[in-house]
Nucleic acid binder design. Structure first.
Length: 419
RNA sequence: GUGGGCGUAGCUCAGCUGGUAGAGCACUCGGUUGUGGUCCGAGAUGUCGCGGGUUCGAGCCCCGUCGCUCACCCCA
């Protein structure tokens, strides 16, 4: 029996796992610098949390959730997104009873039972932030800036930011009436018809030419925004411009989660395939209340770590980021091997990475491993070295060596590496 | 859930109109005694995704099945 990973999961192993780590940390760093703090969350929650929070009519909830019964007969679901679980924790632990806004970030795996494809996985990784308890449009702008900083810090260039406003409840209700009226004039197949009934905005996202052409003249939600929503959206744009963040307004942008209101945004990469969204988010006015909390608003985003890595690779930003050790120790003989274990520990105390040649291989073979490991320096430890308490510190790139006493090896390595 | 493409050594792939498998890279060992990268030599490695069928004979043909992949849908 040959085991395989479950269908559609993303896995990272050396050497690419190193790039994955780097991408994830880079996306989180700007949030830390802006005062967001870690919220470590469970990957599964009460199923009802998602059906209520994300919305039962969404595709995510209606057909993409990993749901199962636990041993107590409770219905459990692997989290398909991060916001709802984060807010649940905020409410449950009373984080919103302190000074507002609550600012938290999270990172981890999410699950959706979709058909996998390039950039779309059944288990994927996201980092996200949520700021709860303030409706200041400057906060909207800062949240967007944090996401943008993350992408920029990776060196990404070929992406763009799309924003829109979904307005408040009254704005959306007024628009929906006219949009439904307009759509009634189009003959739709059954599936599309059903989709339109659940959320007519979805048609804006249809990729079929005839539907796109038809929707090009459909009434836009942006034209129905209330005075307050308009002013709010204008302010967000002003702040973004002020910070030098490029964006384009996409009045046809559609998000798949029901809870979004007001400012909504998406980062789209130009070199990825069909799954080009590398991050997105928005404001959610009614969500806290919907899942049992105070009636306060919040805003957040989720950034796709898997997709950001694909984007980084597509832009060719990963050259020469291989893992290498500082020192490779080659013991010759049993006595040397025991000493090498201690010596390695000594050198590691100085913060240097040290590998040991295992397996009693011939020196030549061990040197080859040292070479392949990419180690900067090599030390051979044999009877002669032990007797004299002196080793040759060899720099692999040049082949040059220098004599170093065993006791001063850590310091000598520090000096050599600092050059 | 729907459609297209593909499944041969660890990786990338070749295998002509059917005659039971190969290359490159990687890997291991060696090229005189304890110093790598080049070069040379030797070696190990595959139920040719799986199951049926046609055939004297199938990696090559047919059917089924599983898997991977890309796209639709949807989204990170």
């Amino acid at each position: 029996m040959k085991f395989q990973a479950p269908k559609g999961v993303s896995e990272y192993f050396p050497p690419r796992s190193r790039a994955f780590e780097w991408v994830r940390e880079s996306l989180i760093a700007p949030a830390r610098l802006a005062g967001y703090q870690l919220l470590e969350l469970p990957v599964f929650e009460d199923t009802e949390l998602f059906t209520r929070g994300v919305g039962a009519s969404t595709d995510v909830v209606s057909k993409e959730m990993y749901t199962f019964q636990d041993r107590g007969g409770r219905s459990i679901t692997l989290r398909p997104e991060g916001t709802v679980g984060a807010l649940r924790a905020v409410i449950e632990h009373g984080l919103d009873r302190k000074s507002l806004p609550v600012k938290i970030f999270y990172s981890g795996a999410f699950f959706r039972a979709e058909r996998p494809q390039a950039g779309r996985y059944r288990q994927f990784y996201s980092v996200g932030i949520e700021a709860v308890g303030s409706d200041d449009p400057a906060l909207d702008a800062e949240v967007i800036a944090i996401a943008d900083n993350g992408f920029k810090s990776l060196g990404l260039k070929q992406y763009h930011l799309e924003i829109t406003s979904l307005g408040d409840l009254a704005s959306r209700a007024a628009h929906r009436i006219d949009l439904v009226k307009y759509i009634a004039g189009l003959k739709l197949d059954e599936a599309t018809q059903a989709r339109a009934e659940i959320n007519p905005l979805r048609l804006f996202d249809d990729k079929r030419e005839e539907i796109r052409a038809f929707m090009a003249k459909a009434p836009l939600l942006l034209d129905y925004l209330s005075q307050e929503s308009q002013e709010n959206f204008a302010a967000v744009q002003r702040y973004l411009t002020h910070m030098g963040i490029d964006f384009q307004i996409n009045p046809r942008m559609v998000r798949g989660l029901d809870y979004y209101t007001g400012t909504t945004f998406e980062f789209v990469h130009d070199l990825l395939g069909a799954q080009s969204g590398i991050g997105g988010g928005g404001r959610y006015d009614g969500l806290m209340k919907e899942i049992g909390g105070q009636d306060i608003t919040g805003i957040g985003f989720g950034l796709g770590v898997d997709r950001a890595l694909l984007a980084v690779e597509a832009e060719g930003l990963l050259k020469g980021d291989e893992f290498t050790s500082d020192l490779f120790l080659i013991p010759l003989g049993e006595d040397a091997k025991s000493r090498a274990l201690l010596l390695a520990a000594e050198v590691r105390k100085f913060g240097h990475s040290v590998e040991i040649a295992f397996g009693d291989r011939a020196l030549k073979g061990a040197m080859k491993s040292a070479d392949k490991s990419g180690a900067a320096y090599v030390v051979v430890l044999g009877d002669a070295e032990i007797a004299s308490a002196t080793v040759e510190l060899k720099q692999m790139s040049t082949g040059s060596t220098s004599s170093v006493t065993l006791t001063s090896l850590p310091q000598a390595l520090s000096l050599a590496l600092a050059k």
